[in-house]
Simulated assay, not measured.
Amino acid sequence: MSAATTLDTTADVVQLTRQLVDIRSVSHQEQEIADAVEAVLRATDHLAVTRRGNTLVARTESGHAERVVIAGHLDTVPENANLPARLEGGVLHGLGSCDMKGGVAVALKLAVELAAPVRDVTWIFYDAEEVEAVHNGLNKLSQSDPDLLQADFAILMEPSNASVEAGCQGTMRVEVRTTGERAHSARAWMGSNAIHSAADVLARLEQHQPRTPVIDGLTYHEGLNAVFISGGVAGNVLPDECVVTVNHRFAPDRTEADAEEFLRTFFAPYDVRVVDTAPGALPGLRVPAAAAFIEEVGGAVAPKFGWTDVARFSTLGIPAVNYGPGDPTLAHKQEEHVPVEHIERCERVLRSWLTGGGA
Protein backbone atom coordinates (compact mmCIF):
# COMPACT_ATOMS: atom_id res chain seq x y z
CA MET A 1 0.00 0.00 0.00
CA SER A 2 1.08 3.56 -0.57
CA ALA A 3 1.89 6.20 1.99
CA ALA A 4 -1.55 7.70 1.28
CA THR A 5 -3.32 4.58 2.53
CA THR A 6 -6.88 5.07 3.71
CA LEU A 7 -8.86 2.62 5.81
CA ASP A 8 -12.49 1.82 5.11
CA THR A 9 -14.06 1.26 8.53
CA THR A 10 -17.48 0.72 6.93
CA ALA A 11 -16.17 -2.65 5.76
CA ASP A 12 -16.80 -5.65 8.01
CA VAL A 13 -14.22 -6.30 10.70
CA VAL A 14 -12.56 -9.15 8.79
CA GLN A 15 -12.01 -6.98 5.72
CA LEU A 16 -10.73 -4.20 7.99
CA THR A 17 -8.23 -6.67 9.46
CA ARG A 18 -7.12 -7.53 5.93
CA GLN A 19 -6.61 -3.83 5.12
CA LEU A 20 -4.46 -3.42 8.25
CA VAL A 21 -2.39 -6.54 7.50
CA ASP A 22 -1.58 -5.19 4.05
CA ILE A 23 -0.05 -2.04 5.54
CA ARG A 24 3.53 -2.98 6.30
CA SER A 25 4.35 -1.90 9.85
CA VAL A 26 7.48 -3.62 11.10
CA SER A 27 8.63 -2.13 14.41
CA HIS A 28 10.08 1.39 13.92
CA GLN A 29 8.25 1.63 10.57
CA GLU A 30 4.73 2.34 11.83
CA GLN A 31 4.17 5.84 10.46
CA GLU A 32 2.02 4.75 7.51
CA ILE A 33 -0.34 2.66 9.61
CA ALA A 34 -0.40 5.27 12.40
CA ASP A 35 -1.29 7.98 9.85
CA ALA A 36 -4.12 5.83 8.46
CA VAL A 37 -5.51 5.08 11.92
CA GLU A 38 -5.20 8.71 12.97
CA ALA A 39 -7.16 9.89 9.91
CA VAL A 40 -10.03 7.57 10.83
CA LEU A 41 -10.05 8.60 14.49
CA ARG A 42 -9.87 12.34 13.82
CA ALA A 43 -12.84 12.07 11.45
CA THR A 44 -14.91 10.68 14.32
CA ASP A 45 -16.73 13.45 16.20
CA HIS A 46 -17.23 11.61 19.51
CA LEU A 47 -13.50 10.99 20.08
CA ALA A 48 -10.82 13.25 21.54
CA VAL A 49 -7.59 12.23 19.81
CA THR A 50 -4.00 12.61 21.01
CA ARG A 51 -0.91 11.49 19.08
CA ARG A 52 2.51 10.92 20.58
CA GLY A 53 4.97 9.76 17.93
CA ASN A 54 3.27 6.79 16.29
CA THR A 55 1.03 6.10 19.29
CA LEU A 56 -2.60 7.22 19.19
CA VAL A 57 -5.06 7.74 22.03
CA ALA A 58 -8.76 8.29 21.35
CA ARG A 59 -11.12 8.95 24.27
CA THR A 60 -14.86 9.22 24.73
CA GLU A 61 -15.77 11.98 27.20
CA SER A 62 -19.36 11.19 28.20
CA GLY A 63 -18.87 11.63 31.94
CA HIS A 64 -19.56 8.01 32.92
CA ALA A 65 -18.44 6.89 36.38
CA GLU A 66 -16.43 4.08 34.87
CA ARG A 67 -13.63 4.23 32.27
CA VAL A 68 -11.93 1.32 30.51
CA VAL A 69 -8.86 1.17 28.28
CA ILE A 70 -8.82 -1.03 25.18
CA ALA A 71 -5.36 -1.20 23.63
CA GLY A 72 -3.49 -2.86 20.79
CA HIS A 73 -0.10 -2.47 19.12
CA LEU A 74 0.32 -1.53 15.46
CA ASP A 75 3.74 -3.07 14.76
CA THR A 76 4.78 -6.51 13.59
CA VAL A 77 7.94 -8.57 13.50
CA PRO A 78 9.89 -8.51 10.18
CA GLU A 79 8.24 -9.89 7.05
CA ASN A 80 8.85 -13.53 6.21
CA ALA A 81 7.27 -14.04 2.77
CA ASN A 82 3.85 -13.74 4.45
CA LEU A 83 2.34 -10.69 2.77
CA PRO A 84 -0.09 -9.71 1.34
CA ALA A 85 -2.99 -11.13 3.35
CA ARG A 86 -5.13 -13.91 1.92
CA LEU A 87 -8.50 -15.23 3.07
CA GLU A 88 -9.04 -18.96 2.67
CA GLY A 89 -11.62 -21.26 4.22
CA GLY A 90 -12.61 -19.00 7.08
CA VAL A 91 -9.00 -18.17 7.99
CA LEU A 92 -7.14 -14.91 7.33
CA HIS A 93 -3.43 -15.47 6.70
CA GLY A 94 -0.67 -12.87 6.79
CA LEU A 95 1.94 -11.08 8.87
CA GLY A 96 0.34 -9.54 11.94
CA SER A 97 -3.06 -11.14 11.33
CA CYS A 98 -2.85 -12.89 14.70
CA ASP A 99 -0.35 -10.62 16.49
CA MET A 100 -2.32 -8.41 16.55
CA LYS A 101 -4.07 -6.67 13.69
CA GLY A 102 -7.22 -8.72 14.20
CA GLY A 103 -7.48 -7.16 17.65
CA VAL A 104 -6.59 -3.71 16.30
CA ALA A 105 -9.34 -4.01 13.67
CA VAL A 106 -11.92 -4.90 16.32
CA ALA A 107 -10.88 -1.95 18.47
CA LEU A 108 -10.73 0.51 15.57
CA LYS A 109 -14.15 -0.44 14.19
CA LEU A 110 -15.78 -0.17 17.62
CA ALA A 111 -14.00 3.10 18.39
CA VAL A 112 -15.52 4.64 15.27
CA GLU A 113 -19.00 3.13 15.55
CA LEU A 114 -19.77 3.35 19.28
CA ALA A 115 -20.63 6.99 19.85
CA ALA A 116 -22.40 6.40 23.17
CA PRO A 117 -20.92 3.43 25.07
CA VAL A 118 -22.27 2.70 28.55
CA ARG A 119 -18.79 3.25 30.02
CA ASP A 120 -16.20 5.75 28.82
CA VAL A 121 -13.48 4.18 26.69
CA THR A 122 -9.86 5.09 26.05
CA TRP A 123 -8.76 3.45 22.80
CA ILE A 124 -4.96 3.13 22.44
CA PHE A 125 -3.09 2.11 19.28
CA TYR A 126 0.64 2.05 19.96
CA ASP A 127 3.95 1.32 18.28
CA ALA A 128 7.15 -0.67 18.94
CA GLU A 129 5.74 -3.46 21.09
CA GLU A 130 7.82 -6.14 19.36
CA VAL A 131 11.19 -4.57 20.27
CA GLU A 132 13.04 -3.42 23.38
CA ALA A 133 10.85 -1.90 26.11
CA VAL A 134 12.61 1.46 25.84
CA HIS A 135 10.92 1.96 22.45
CA ASN A 136 7.47 0.65 23.44
CA GLY A 137 4.81 3.28 22.71
CA LEU A 138 2.65 2.27 25.66
CA ASN A 139 5.66 2.48 27.95
CA LYS A 140 6.53 5.93 26.61
CA LEU A 141 2.92 7.05 27.03
CA SER A 142 2.91 5.90 30.66
CA GLN A 143 5.87 8.20 31.25
CA SER A 144 4.84 11.24 29.18
CA ASP A 145 1.05 11.20 29.68
CA PRO A 146 0.10 8.86 32.53
CA ASP A 147 -3.22 10.70 32.89
CA LEU A 148 -4.26 9.38 29.45
CA LEU A 149 -3.96 5.83 30.77
CA GLN A 150 -6.04 6.27 33.91
CA ALA A 151 -8.97 3.83 34.00
CA ASP A 152 -10.82 1.34 36.17
CA PHE A 153 -10.01 -1.63 33.95
CA ALA A 154 -7.96 -2.39 30.81
CA ILE A 155 -8.20 -4.91 27.99
CA LEU A 156 -5.11 -5.64 25.91
CA MET A 157 -6.16 -7.20 22.63
CA GLU A 158 -3.28 -9.66 22.43
CA PRO A 159 -4.21 -12.98 20.79
CA SER A 160 -5.81 -15.26 23.38
CA ASN A 161 -8.00 -17.56 21.27
CA ALA A 162 -10.88 -15.12 21.76
CA SER A 163 -11.05 -15.98 25.46
CA VAL A 164 -9.89 -14.13 28.56
CA GLU A 165 -6.38 -14.62 29.89
CA ALA A 166 -6.01 -12.68 33.12
CA GLY A 167 -2.91 -10.92 34.41
CA CYS A 168 0.49 -12.16 33.33
CA GLN A 169 3.67 -13.62 34.75
CA GLY A 170 6.67 -11.50 35.50
CA THR A 171 9.99 -12.30 33.89
CA MET A 172 13.56 -11.93 35.10
CA ARG A 173 16.85 -12.99 33.53
CA VAL A 174 19.95 -13.38 35.67
CA GLU A 175 23.53 -14.41 35.07
CA VAL A 176 24.81 -16.95 37.56
CA ARG A 177 28.60 -16.90 37.59
CA THR A 178 30.94 -19.64 38.79
CA THR A 179 34.66 -18.96 39.17
CA GLY A 180 37.80 -21.05 39.13
CA GLU A 181 41.50 -20.75 38.45
CA ARG A 182 43.18 -21.01 35.07
CA ALA A 183 45.72 -23.73 34.47
CA HIS A 184 47.07 -25.72 31.55
CA SER A 185 44.70 -28.60 30.81
CA ALA A 186 47.68 -30.95 30.95
CA ARG A 187 48.16 -29.95 34.61
CA ALA A 188 44.49 -29.60 35.57
CA TRP A 189 45.20 -30.34 39.25
CA MET A 190 46.95 -26.97 39.46
CA GLY A 191 43.75 -25.04 38.67
CA SER A 192 40.00 -25.14 39.15
CA ASN A 193 37.52 -25.60 36.29
CA ALA A 194 34.68 -23.05 36.46
CA ILE A 195 32.63 -24.93 33.87
CA HIS A 196 32.69 -28.06 36.01
CA SER A 197 31.55 -25.95 38.95
CA ALA A 198 28.50 -24.91 36.95
CA ALA A 199 27.25 -28.50 37.22
CA ASP A 200 25.93 -27.63 40.66
CA VAL A 201 23.97 -24.70 39.23
CA LEU A 202 22.44 -26.93 36.55
CA ALA A 203 21.64 -29.65 39.09
CA ARG A 204 19.74 -27.15 41.23
CA LEU A 205 17.71 -26.11 38.20
CA GLU A 206 17.00 -29.71 37.25
CA GLN A 207 15.74 -30.52 40.76
CA HIS A 208 13.70 -27.35 41.24
CA GLN A 209 9.97 -27.79 41.82
CA PRO A 210 8.17 -24.68 40.52
CA ARG A 211 5.49 -22.88 42.50
CA THR A 212 1.88 -23.12 41.32
CA PRO A 213 0.11 -20.39 43.31
CA VAL A 214 -3.64 -19.83 42.97
CA ILE A 215 -4.58 -16.17 42.50
CA ASP A 216 -8.20 -15.08 42.04
CA GLY A 217 -9.04 -18.72 41.38
CA LEU A 218 -6.41 -19.03 38.61
CA THR A 219 -3.43 -21.38 38.89
CA TYR A 220 -0.17 -19.86 37.68
CA HIS A 221 2.79 -22.13 36.91
CA GLU A 222 6.23 -20.63 37.47
CA GLY A 223 9.34 -21.51 35.48
CA LEU A 224 13.07 -21.51 36.19
CA ASN A 225 15.29 -22.48 33.27
CA ALA A 226 18.83 -22.13 31.97
CA VAL A 227 18.67 -20.44 28.55
CA PHE A 228 22.37 -19.82 27.82
CA ILE A 229 25.70 -21.06 29.12
CA SER A 230 29.09 -19.62 28.27
CA GLY A 231 32.66 -20.17 29.36
CA GLY A 232 36.07 -21.12 28.11
CA VAL A 233 39.40 -19.48 27.27
CA ALA A 234 41.22 -21.80 24.91
CA GLY A 235 41.33 -25.44 23.94
CA ASN A 236 44.15 -26.18 26.38
CA VAL A 237 43.22 -23.90 29.30
CA LEU A 238 40.99 -24.57 32.30
CA PRO A 239 38.39 -21.76 32.34
CA ASP A 240 38.30 -19.46 35.34
CA GLU A 241 34.72 -18.30 34.68
CA CYS A 242 31.44 -19.79 33.52
CA VAL A 243 28.14 -17.94 33.20
CA VAL A 244 24.74 -19.63 33.20
CA THR A 245 21.91 -17.33 32.09
CA VAL A 246 18.64 -18.23 33.78
CA ASN A 247 15.12 -17.06 32.95
CA HIS A 248 12.65 -16.99 35.81
CA ARG A 249 8.94 -16.65 35.01
CA PHE A 250 7.30 -15.72 38.29
CA ALA A 251 3.65 -15.58 39.31
CA PRO A 252 2.11 -12.13 39.78
CA ASP A 253 1.80 -12.54 43.55
CA ARG A 254 5.55 -11.84 43.62
CA THR A 255 7.17 -8.49 42.96
CA GLU A 256 10.40 -8.11 41.03
CA ALA A 257 12.17 -7.61 44.38
CA ASP A 258 10.65 -10.88 45.65
CA ALA A 259 11.81 -12.69 42.51
CA GLU A 260 15.34 -11.31 42.81
CA GLU A 261 15.57 -12.28 46.48
CA PHE A 262 14.40 -15.80 45.64
CA LEU A 263 17.01 -16.17 42.89
CA ARG A 264 19.87 -14.87 45.04
CA THR A 265 18.93 -17.29 47.81
CA PHE A 266 18.36 -20.19 45.44
CA PHE A 267 21.80 -19.80 43.80
CA ALA A 268 23.80 -18.80 46.90
CA PRO A 269 26.77 -18.58 47.26
CA TYR A 270 27.25 -17.94 43.53
CA ASP A 271 27.37 -14.43 42.10
CA VAL A 272 23.98 -13.46 40.61
CA ARG A 273 23.50 -10.44 38.34
CA VAL A 274 20.10 -9.29 37.08
CA VAL A 275 20.27 -8.46 33.36
CA ASP A 276 16.58 -8.00 32.47
CA THR A 277 13.35 -7.77 34.44
CA ALA A 278 9.66 -6.94 34.03
CA PRO A 279 6.86 -7.16 36.61
CA GLY A 280 3.86 -9.43 36.42
CA ALA A 281 0.25 -8.31 36.58
CA LEU A 282 -2.40 -9.47 39.04
CA PRO A 283 -5.68 -10.66 37.48
CA GLY A 284 -7.82 -8.05 39.25
CA LEU A 285 -11.01 -9.90 38.36
CA ARG A 286 -13.02 -8.54 41.28
CA VAL A 287 -13.43 -4.96 40.03
CA PRO A 288 -16.95 -4.34 38.66
CA ALA A 289 -15.91 -3.67 35.06
CA ALA A 290 -13.81 -6.85 34.98
CA ALA A 291 -16.60 -8.94 36.51
CA ALA A 292 -19.08 -7.58 33.94
CA PHE A 293 -16.69 -8.32 31.10
CA ILE A 294 -16.02 -11.88 32.29
CA GLU A 295 -19.77 -12.47 32.46
CA GLU A 296 -20.16 -11.12 28.92
CA VAL A 297 -17.45 -13.39 27.55
CA GLY A 298 -19.00 -16.39 29.24
CA GLY A 299 -17.25 -16.75 32.58
CA ALA A 300 -14.24 -18.86 31.49
CA VAL A 301 -10.89 -17.31 32.44
CA ALA A 302 -7.38 -18.72 32.15
CA PRO A 303 -4.09 -17.42 33.56
CA LYS A 304 -1.66 -15.80 31.14
CA PHE A 305 1.54 -17.84 30.87
CA GLY A 306 3.99 -15.29 29.59
CA TRP A 307 4.48 -11.54 29.78
CA THR A 308 2.38 -8.91 28.02
CA ASP A 309 1.79 -5.19 28.32
CA VAL A 310 -1.01 -5.79 30.82
CA ALA A 311 1.83 -5.49 33.32
CA ARG A 312 2.21 -1.81 32.43
CA PHE A 313 -1.39 -1.23 33.48
CA SER A 314 -0.91 -3.23 36.66
CA THR A 315 2.06 -1.03 37.55
CA LEU A 316 -0.31 1.95 37.31
CA GLY A 317 -2.82 0.21 39.58
CA ILE A 318 -5.20 -0.71 36.73
CA PRO A 319 -6.45 -4.33 36.60
CA ALA A 320 -6.05 -5.74 33.09
CA VAL A 321 -6.72 -8.83 31.00
CA ASN A 322 -5.68 -10.15 27.60
CA TYR A 323 -8.53 -10.71 25.16
CA GLY A 324 -8.11 -10.93 21.42
CA PRO A 325 -8.55 -13.08 18.30
CA GLY A 326 -5.94 -15.61 17.29
CA ASP A 327 -3.81 -18.37 18.76
CA PRO A 328 -0.82 -16.83 20.58
CA THR A 329 1.38 -19.79 19.62
CA LEU A 330 1.16 -18.62 15.99
CA ALA A 331 2.59 -15.19 16.76
CA HIS A 332 5.82 -14.47 14.81
CA LYS A 333 5.52 -17.63 12.71
CA GLN A 334 5.60 -17.57 8.91
CA GLU A 335 2.24 -19.35 8.80
CA GLU A 336 0.64 -16.77 11.12
CA HIS A 337 -3.13 -16.65 10.70
CA VAL A 338 -6.36 -15.90 12.54
CA PRO A 339 -9.77 -17.57 12.32
CA VAL A 340 -12.48 -15.28 10.99
CA GLU A 341 -14.76 -16.58 13.74
CA HIS A 342 -12.35 -15.28 16.42
CA ILE A 343 -12.36 -11.77 14.95
CA GLU A 344 -16.13 -11.72 14.67
CA ARG A 345 -16.65 -13.13 18.16
CA CYS A 346 -14.38 -10.54 19.77
CA GLU A 347 -16.18 -7.72 17.98
CA ARG A 348 -19.58 -9.09 19.00
CA VAL A 349 -18.64 -9.55 22.67
CA LEU A 350 -16.96 -6.17 23.07
CA ARG A 351 -19.78 -4.37 21.26
CA SER A 352 -22.35 -5.98 23.56
CA TRP A 353 -20.33 -5.22 26.71
CA LEU A 354 -19.76 -1.60 25.74
CA THR A 355 -23.39 -0.98 24.79
CA GLY A 356 -25.02 -2.92 27.62
CA GLY A 357 -26.66 -5.22 25.12
CA GLY A 358 -26.12 -8.50 26.94
CA ALA A 359 -24.59 -11.61 25.46
Score class of each variant (00 low, 15 high):
Ala290Trp: 02
Pro210Ser: 10
Thr277Val: 15
Pro213His: 10
Asn225Trp: 07
Val287Gln: 11
Ala291Val: 10
Ile294Ser: 04
Asp258Cys: 03
Asp253Thr: 07
Gln209Val: 15
Thr255Met: 06
Arg204Tyr: 07
Thr277Leu: 11
Gly280Glu: 01
Asp258Ile: 01
Val274Pro: 09
Ile294Pro: 03
Val297Met: 04
Ala234Asn: 11
Glu260Gln: 14
Ile215Tyr: 08
Glu295Gln: 15
Ile229Pro: 02
Asp253Trp: 08
Ala291Arg: 15
Pro239Gly: 02
Pro283Lys: 01
Ala226Leu: 01
Ala257Arg: 15
Leu263Asp: 02
Gly217Tyr: 10
Val214Ser: 10
Val287Gly: 04
Leu238Ala: 02
Ala268Leu: 08
Tyr270Phe: 13
Asp240Gln: 09
Thr212Met: 10
Leu282Arg: 14
Arg254Glu: 12
Val246Ile: 15
Glu206Gly: 10
Gly298Phe: 09
Ala268Asn: 09
Val214Gln: 12
Val237Trp: 12
Phe293Tyr: 05
Leu282Lys: 10
Gly298Lys: 07
Tyr220Ala: 01
Ala268Asp: 14
Gly223Trp: 03
Gln209Gly: 08
Arg264Glu: 07
Ser230Val: 09
Glu206Asp: 15
Leu205Arg: 03
Val246His: 03
Thr255Gln: 08
Leu218Thr: 03
Pro213Thr: 12
Val287Cys: 13
Pro252Phe: 02
His248Thr: 05
Asp240Gly: 12
Tyr220Met: 07
His208Met: 07
Val246Lys: 00
Thr277Cys: 12
His221Gly: 07
Leu285Cys: 04
Val237Asn: 06
Glu256Phe: 07
Ile215Thr: 05
Gly232Leu: 08
Pro239Glu: 03
His248Leu: 13
Phe266Asp: 02
Arg254Met: 15
Ser230Gly: 13
Thr255Asn: 06
Arg249Phe: 12
Gly284Pro: 00
Gln207Glu: 14
Gln209Arg: 15
Asp240Pro: 13
Thr255Trp: 06
Pro210Gly: 12
Leu224Gly: 00
Glu296Asp: 11
Val275Gln: 09
Glu222Ser: 03
Ala290Asp: 02
Ala226Asn: 06
Leu285Asp: 00
Asn247Thr: 12
Ala259Thr: 01
Arg211Leu: 14
Pro288Phe: 09
Leu238Met: 11
Gly231Arg: 04
Asp271Gln: 14
Glu256Asp: 07
Glu222Trp: 02
Asp216Val: 06
Gly235Val: 08
His221Leu: 10
Gly284Val: 05
Ala251Tyr: 00
Glu260Lys: 11
Pro239His: 01
Asp216Gln: 11
Arg286Ser: 14
Asn225Leu: 12
Thr265Ser: 15
Gly284Glu: 00
Val214Gly: 04
Gly280Tyr: 08
Phe266Ser: 00
Phe293Ala: 01
Phe262His: 04
His208Lys: 04
Val244Phe: 06
Ala226Ser: 14
Pro210Glu: 14
Glu296Phe: 04
Leu282Trp: 13
